[in-house]
Each structure stands twice: as structure tokens, then as C-alpha cells.
Design a protein around this nucleic acid. Sequence first.
DNA 1: TCTGGCACTCGCACGCGCAGAGTGCCAGGC
DNA 2: GCCTGGCACTCTGCGCGTGCGAGTGCCAGA
Lengths: 338, 338
Amino acid sequence: MLSERRLQVLRAIVQDYVGTEEPVGSKALTERHNLGVSPATVRNDMAALEDEGYIAQPHTSAGRIPTDKGYRLFVDKLAGVKPMSPPERRAIQNFLEGAVDLDDVVARTVRLLAQLTRQVAVVQYPSLTRSTVRHVELLSLAPARVMLVLITDTGRVEQRLVDCPAPFGEASLADLRARLNSRVAGRRFTDVPQLVEDLPEAFEVEDRGTVSTVLSTLLETLVEENEERLMIGGTANLTRFGHDFPLTIRPVLEALEEQVVLLKLLGEAKDPGVTVRIGHENAHEGLNSTSVVSVGYGSGGEAVAKLGVVGPTRMDYPGTMGAVRAVARYVGQILAES
Amino acid sequence: MLSERRLQVLRAIVQDYVGTEEPVGSKALTERHNLGVSPATVRNDMAALEDEGYIAQPHTSAGRIPTDKGYRLFVDKLAGVKPMSPPERRAIQNFLEGAVDLDDVVARTVRLLAQLTRQVAVVQYPSLTRSTVRHVELLSLAPARVMLVLITDTGRVEQRLVDCPAPFGEASLADLRARLNSRVAGRRFTDVPQLVEDLPEAFEVEDRGTVSTVLSTLLETLVEENEERLMIGGTANLTRFGHDFPLTIRPVLEALEEQVVLLKLLGEAKDPGVTVRIGHENAHEGLNSTSVVSVGYGSGGEAVAKLGVVGPTRMDYPGTMGAVRAVARYVGQILAES
DNA sequence: TCTGGCACTCGCACGCGCAGAGTGCCAGGC
DNA sequence: GCCTGGCACTCTGCGCGTGCGAGTGCCAGA
């Protein structure tokens, strides 16, 4: 177990390194933080911290920098979440309230997060897993062609073209529309399959094929919608990564383009609060020198999606966590209102 | 006017520089291209080309590199568009045909372009300016709340919530839906405003306010939709920019995030064929060291949107132009089929 | 008009040495 | 037992000078 002072030393190292981006030595530490002890003492503590794997030296006789393990301890034990100031909160709220539709909400959220944290922001579109169906619309485009429009309670709209195995009359279509909506409107996505299971039986034999086709398209759409979309922004902030960033930045850009990777990344965060994954804690190796700060957000009590930022492990964790948490909270409010 | 050989020298310089990324000297030129003359002669030609501003030396006694003006001449006079090989064409077609919906078409196109050109790809969503309305759907969500869903012939769906000034009955709603569709279905966006102008007059006085509100929301949506969306990809290719790229890459990333900038960029290309804007020809100064190769694409004869790539001025123009043109052609085909 | 030759100019890589920062360790003091 | 000041040591980074090589411009001759 580390003594109280050693923890303070670690905290000071993290703070200084995040600020200066340069390895920090014992002397500088005692000057900038009044720890009440001499550099020599700090040196001993640093040696101990290094033995434990919390800090490391890039090369002999340079200062120390925190390791992933060091950051982990810092985040877990040594630093809280820095709350946003009231003016910042107001700015966030104002900015988000200007949004005109869901796309705009997401777009604004991305910009906001990127600006506040000066890092790369990632925002997942509100998930439909927990969403409910608001309305299903069926439009006849041709005798054997139907357009299916799904509207969810989060305001998303998805459409699919359905080629019917047989011509389908307007009357049958209206019938299907009515039956379908009476069963699924207001219900959860996950409940829909069993709710419509026996629906084809209510129709004439010659229409059953078409009804089945429409239904299976609907189910596909529901599933597909769960493959979330997301939006990223603030990639220009990657240039602040470090001096050697040509090598670092490349895999990060590649990872950011793989939506699957990002979704998995956000998905891994299970905590109700802000989750931080540091360096090698990230499964994707392109992101081994980055940290991901993420949190769920949602209109009600339930989180319907996640958002977060990706930045260098050397980041201001308390500030970033505060910004991410605040933005998530206000986005949730906006979604609840609309 | 430059002699034939000097043009050949310029062409050789561009090709070598694009290949090696290093300033090219007179000796190397004569070795790699059999120009039939000695280095000394080439030197004279190079001096002339430099006087005319087609090439420059980064510093005294280094080789020459092409200037923007040199690339311009190269693109206009010295190089054609390199057609894709049949296997490449087949690969493009196969890849695009796997798309399930419009979003997927655009997403695949971006990936394809980025891969083929190894540069940053930008694809604009098919424009609605020339699109027509397929259907307008109105759904009653609450007594004084209507959801408006617009479906276009390109398969896009947009929805808006409308808060009505007064409660609006189901019957009136159905009436409005019918009248609206009979007027605007199949019509061009640009024609819609005058087509619905006198529509409120057909309704009872107490409903007119609501009808007007719905209509103006519809018109807003049409206009807003013309603020095109776009998708970008392949940003990881920016890392191949050059050795000094920290400074170069930053403004490019920033420009890429400003959709407005990109749209303007693509919009500037007026030619029916492939357009190339080189270095300082780009209005946005963050893109002064990049070239933009773009082309319109569309389902019919008309171009409904643009796509292109952004890369270093030192790029393989013939190959890039060929890839951009081929992708545009096949995307057009795919759109026409669906 | 082209060519070979020649002198010239720089940028760049290399080697060297120095200063500075930082460390580890040790002996002494509270 | 823990903290402190001192000291020797080890690196890295930087500035400087040098030599090399690539590339040029110019000129006289074919």
C-alpha cells in the first residue's frame, strides 16, 4: 500500500505532466507543489512508485511520466470529476436548445464535446433497443411494391422498399396498416416479433405471402436499427497529440473510421456513471495510446445511447469527465423535451 | 510558348516527383526517361520552366518540384485520365451493388473512393433540388401535434414535428393529406411552393392556421434538405501527406469538418467532366496545399450531386481522375437501378 | 542547338563536446 | 526510522564545425 504522500506525489506528477507535456523531475515537483518535503525525499517516493509500475522514465535521467496504471490510480482514487461552471452549463444548454431535429442535436453535441474537451468527440445516435414504435406507415408505390416507414418515439424515421410476391390491393394495405399499428404502436422493439407473429393468418390466403414479406422487412429494420450509427467530430484536435504523432495518429484515424470499433468501444462502458478506459485497457490496439471517456445518456432514466471523447492518455481527466457528464445530462434533457 | 521537349521535361518532373516525393534533378531525369538529350540540356529547359513559374527549387542546389501552375499545365495538357482496368471496374461494381439502401450506397462509395485513390474521399448525398416529391405523409400524434414525413424519389425520408396553433381533427388531416399529395406528388421541389400557395383557402377558417403552419414546415424542410449532407472517409490517408505534415494536416482536418466549406468546394466544380482544383486555386486557405478532384454524378443524365477526393497537390492526377470518374459512373448506375 | 566540363553553392549528415537536468546513493541530523 | 543535503554519475539535447554530395549555372566547343 502506498503512503498518503506518495499518492500526492503521483497526483502531482500526473497534473504536471498533463500540463506541460514533459517528463517531470523531483525538483520541479517540490517547487510547484508544496509537498513539505525536499526533492531527495520525493526521489525516494518516485523510485517506489516506479517499482510499483505507476510511473516510468522515458530514458535514464529524464523525469518521470505516468504509466497507464498510474493514470488508472489517479482517475480512481486521486481525482474527482470537475464540475462545469455555471456559465459553461448555461452555454451548453443554450447551444443544444437551438437544435431543430435529432440529427441536429447529435451534430451539435459532437461539436460541443469536441470544443469543450478539445478532443475527438463521438456521439452515438439514440438507440432503439429500448425505444418504442410510434407508428408504422405503409405506402403503395406500385401494385406489387410497398414502402414501409417506421417512426420511433425518439423521432427517428426509417424506410424500406418492399417488393411483394403478389399484387396487394389498397384495401388490404389499409387493413394491414391498421392491424399492424394497433398491435405495435407504443410497444417496445423487442416485443414486436411476437406481437405480429400470427398476423398473416388474419388475411386472405393470396395476401399472406405479401404480409409475411412486409413483416419480415419490418423486423429486419428493427434489428438493423440496433446497429447504431454514430457521429464523430473534432478530429483536428488530434494534431495536439504530441510531437511524435505521425505514428500515433495514423491508427487512431483508422480506428475512428471503423464505426464497428467505436461502437464496441462505447458499448464496453457498463457503469452508470462516466467510464474511463486508459491506454492498453482499450481492446483495439490502434487506440493503445489513447484514453476513452464515455457515458450513457438518455431521455428518461434509462440510457438509450452513449457518447464520449477519445484523446491522448495524457489528458485532463477531471475536466474531460466533467464535460462529458455535463453534455450527456443536457442532451438527455433536450431529448426528453422534444 | 514552350517547346515540345520542355513540356516533356515538365511531365517527367511531375511524374518523378509524384513517385518519389523528392525534388528531382537533371541527371536523374535523363536516366529514368529517355529524353534523348543530356543533363545539361535538361538543365537549360528546367531553367526556362522555372522562369515561367512551372517549377521551383525548395532551396538552391536541390532538385526542382512542380508549382501549382506546373501541375495545372500537366493536368490540362500533358496527361489524360487513366481509365480503370476491367478487373477494377468489376470490383467497383460488385462492391457498390451490395448496398442495401441510400445511406449504404453513400457509405460504400466513400470507402471505395478512399481505397482506390488512397486519399480523403468526400461524397455528397444525392441532391433534392432536382428531386421530386414521392409522398407526403401526415400523422396525428396529439390533437394539436402533427408529424410530417416527406419521402423523395431518391428514397430519402425526412420528418418534422409540427405544433399546430389549434386542434386539428382526423378528418381535416386526411383531407389535407389527400389534397397535398394530389398536388405535389411527383413534382419537383422547386415547384412545390407555388403549387400549395392557395391550399389554405380550401379549408374552414378555423383550420387555416394549422394548414399554413404545416405547409410552411414542409417548405422549410424542402429548403433545408437542399443544404446537402455529405460523408467523408479515408482521413487516415492524410498521414501520407508528407514529412512536415503536422502543420499541413491541421487546417485540412479543420476544413474537412466544416461541411459548408466542403460543399462550396464541390459546388465550385461546374464542368460536366472531372474538375481539378490545385493548391491555391482552392478558395479555402486551409486547403492551399491540397488538390481537389471532383465530378458530378446522378441517376439519369442530370448530375444530382458531387463526389471527389482531397489530397496533396503531389498526387497521381491521371489515376485519381480515372478512379473518381469511374466511381461516379457506377454510383449513377446503381442509383438509376434502385 | 546541343554537349561536356568545371566551378560554385548549399543542405544535410556526422562527429564532437558541453551544459543541464535528473537520478541514485550515502552519510548525517532530527 | 524517516528526512535531508551533498555528491558523483548518466544521459539527452544542442550548438558547432566539417566534409560530402547533389545539383546548378555558365561557358566554350562541336
